[in-house]
Design a protein around this nucleic acid. Structure first.
Length: 423
RNA sequence: GGUGAGGUGGGUGAGUGGCUGAAACCACCAGUUUGCUAAACUGACGUACGGGUAACCGUACCGGGGGUUCGAAUCCCCCCCUCACCGCCA
């Protein structure tokens, strides 16, 4: 969530920037500022009353020691009075605070100035592209048919065991999954990221920390008996490592990578978007996470983009990078770049990575801070990105790699798959 | 699942009603000494909110919530978590 400070000190600017996300913040921010004024006044009054009561309590102790009973009794009566008066102030203060927080929670992050205006996917800006364009014949098959032809991914079997969206990978299909995970983790490690193996199930506090709760509760699988959530991405457990932590500036940027299975209910999805590997309830992903100073976070973001680009390049896939417009930007993000690869047989772009800077938005809820050289504590910036999500990469590898001999694997991957063709 | 022990600052750990926002030790930071390093010595050293240009002052916080009391880390109640042993299982 946004900090109270930015709202009270840069009110007009905040309202202006929120408009780019198509969020009209004028009223709610006015309310917050009013509530904050009342909150401050109440606290000042309450603190004074409590200070007086504390003083009296000390005096009573002294008077008792000296045997001045009647004076002590008089002081006691006075503290009782004060206590009565603080009751209401205490309640008011709590109310003001929760009212303010409730409002802060529904205000999205401020978009960075670089974020283009726009309503939806069509307004996203292509900032860079590359990779070899495949030349497939008219008889090129979509990946779900290739999966069947080579018997490497069985969607029906997944339906039998679990349900739609839980495919079963077999033979070279399964080996390709394992190879990609290994390939991504090795690359991340060589780029300086510390490998983490996190829990795949998290508690409520972690869900709130990264912002999946309360708003996206319906998107996560929930274990009722233990009140735990299956993670939708490794971002959740990895970022929560730094919840309630004060880092030293010298430790930044923190660079972590983690593989995990990811679980998403994807409530409300339908149609061709969910065909084959395009959208699953369980999938594999390697994530990169950074915690950084505000001064350096945009350098970090660029390094993350450059890094992800090396992955799609090594996989010999045609790619482009989109800078998401205000309307397409997620609630918590200040700026997001999506990597898409071209799926030649489906003739459409598939999102395989989303790299974002959340600035202090996530850190504020996480209470992830750092100590500057001059000993001040400040909120960190948090960033994350997929590097990469497997299913759509597999879809693109299958479709773009199809040839007479089967499906050709990119050179960089062969040391991991130990085979050159799926045939 | 059963039984027991325990949750105090970055760490270890003292503290059973006022002198405690919290001893001591360790770590970290600054300085002195030193040819360098080490050692030794000196000092500083929690977080949040509120007030103030600032120095600084006030309030709250000893797992969380409630209660008793003029006054609670300390007493009472509820909850959460961790550890140990046993059982069960991988």
């Amino acid at each position: 969530m946004l900090t109270l400070k930015v709202i009270t000190e840069e009110t007009d600017d905040v309202i202006r920037r929120l408009a780019k996300k198509h969020f009209d913040g004028k009223q709610i921010i006015g309310e917050i500022i009013e509530l904050d004024k009342k909150r401050r006044a109440t606290q000042a009054e309450l603190d004074n009353a409590k200070a007086e009561a504390n003083n009296l309590a000390k005096q009573i102790g002294q008077l008792m020691k000296e045997g001045k009973k009647s004076e002590a009794e008089a002081a006691k009566a006075k503290t009782a009075e004060i206590k009565e008066s603080t009751k209401k102030m205490d309640e008011d203060l709590k109310n003001f605070e929760t009212e303010i927080t409730n409002r802060l929670l529904v205000i999205p992050n401020l978009p960075n100035e670089l974020v283009p205006e726009g309503n939806g996917a069509d307004d996203n800006l292509v900032v860079k592209e590359g990779g070899p364009k495949p030349n497939l014949g008219p008889d090129a098959l979509p990946h779900w048919e290739l999966a069947k032809k080579y018997d490497i991914i069985d969607f029906d079997l997944g339906v039998k065991i679990t349900g739609a969206g839980f495919p079963v990978y077999k033979g070279k299909g399964a080996r390709l999954q394992r190879a990609l995970i290994d390939f991504f983790l090795d690359n991340a490690r060589e780029a300086g990221y510390l490998e983490i193996e996190p829990p795949y199930v998290v508690n409520q506090a972690s869900g709130y920390g990264t912002g999946q709760l309360p708003d996206k509760e319906g998107q996560m699988y929930h274990c009722n008996v233990d009140d735990l959530y299956l993670i939708p991405t490794a971002e959740v457990p990895v970022t929560n490592i730094y919840r309630d932590v004060i880092l030293n500036e010298s430790e930044l940027p923190v660079m972590n990578t983690a593989y995990s299975a990811c679980f998403r209910r994807e409530a409300g999805s339908y149609g061709k978007d969910v065909r084959g590997l395009n959208r699953l309830h369980q999938f594999d992903k390697v994530e990169i996470v950074r915690i950084d100073t505000p001064e350096h976070s945009y350098t970090s973001l660029q390094e993350m983009l450059d890094y992800v680009q090396t992955l799609v390049d090594k996989l010999e896939l045609p790619w482009h990078i989109l800078r998401l417009c205000g309307g397409d930007l997620s609630f918590t993000s200040a700026i997001t770049y999506d990597f898409e690869v071209f799926s030649a047989a489906q003739k459409r772009w598939l999102e395989v990575s989303s790299v974002s800077n959340f600035e202090t938005y996530q850190a504020n809820r996480l209470k992830c801070r750092y100590r500057t050289a001059d000993k001040k504590t400040q909120l960190c910036h948090t960033l994350n990105g997929s590097a990469l999500a497997l299913p759509r990469i597999v879809a693109a590898l299958l479709e773009n790699g199809q040839c007479e001999k089967g499906i050709r694997m990119p050179k960089a991957l062969v040391p991991y798959t130990h085979f050159e063709y799926i045939d």
